[in-house]
Computed example of a mutant assay.
Amino acid sequence: MKCDVYKSDAMKGVYVFIKDGSPLEPFLLDDSLKGFNSPYRFKTIEFDDDSPLIAADPKIIKKSIEAKGFHIQKTEIKSSNVSGAGAAIGGGLLAASLGFGIFGAAVAAIGSAILANAANSDKDKSGGDSDES
């Protein structure tokens, strides 16, 4: 199946698949696409039932398009807890690579560890991820 994939800056992480060459406008009247404002064609893809697609099942997309003419794919990216040690190493390496020397790398490492621990503490207090999709 060959599809045009549309996205909208108004709805982050939402993609609408329709058959290649079909107009999108008639589907925008569907209640499930309210808020999908100023859509634009992101890309055209061709796939079959066994094609690997990122965050999507080609069989479900095909079935949805055949049933109602379009498919809505929502992607969700969540971050897990960031290790203070990992953040410290990353911050130190970044500072060193930017030429801030040993002292700058140490300061960046300590600051990164503090920020990671504070972010994890905020997540724990709120009961989970505070990221929005």
Rank of each mutant, 00 (worst) to 15 (best):
A119N: 03
G90K: 05
S80G: 11
G111N: 09
Y40K: 15
G35K: 14
S8F: 14
S51M: 05
S126W: 00
C3K: 07
E76H: 11
P52D: 12
I77S: 06
L93F: 15
V5S: 15
K43C: 08
K74A: 06
K59Q: 03
I18R: 09
N120M: 03
A119K: 03
Y6L: 13
S51R: 05
S22A: 15
V5K: 08
I18P: 09
D48R: 05
G35W: 11
K19Q: 10
E46W: 01
S121D: 07
S83L: 02
G21L: 12
K63Y: 09
S8N: 10
D57R: 06
A106S: 12
G21N: 13
A113C: 09
S51T: 09
P52F: 09
K123Y: 04
N81I: 03
D48G: 03
S79C: 08
A55N: 06
Q73Y: 00
G92I: 02
I61P: 00
G101I: 09
D20Y: 13
G86T: 07
L33V: 14
D50A: 01
A55I: 02
F47V: 04
I65V: 15
F42N: 12
G21Y: 12
Y40E: 15
S32G: 12
K12I: 13
A56D: 06
A56M: 08
S130K: 15
D50G: 05
S22Q: 13
D124L: 10
T44G: 07
P39D: 06
A56V: 12
F36I: 10
A116L: 03
A67E: 04
V107M: 15
I54Q: 05
I114P: 00
A10W: 14
I77A: 10
S97C: 13
S80T: 05
L94G: 10
Y6M: 14
D20L: 00
D48I: 04
I110A: 14
S80C: 03
S121H: 07
S8C: 13
A87C: 05
V82L: 02
K19D: 05
A105S: 10
F100A: 12
L33K: 10
Q73E: 08
S121T: 08
G91C: 11
V14G: 00
A109Y: 07
A113K: 04
F47S: 03
Q73R: 15
A85I: 14
K63I: 00
I77Q: 06
I18E: 14
K68D: 11
G69P: 09
F70N: 01
L24C: 11
D124W: 03
I72A: 08
G86S: 07
F70Y: 10
K78N: 06
F47Q: 04
M1N: 12
D4N: 06
N37V: 11
D9H: 09
K68E: 11
I72D: 05
V107A: 11
K19R: 04
Q73W: 07
K2A: 06
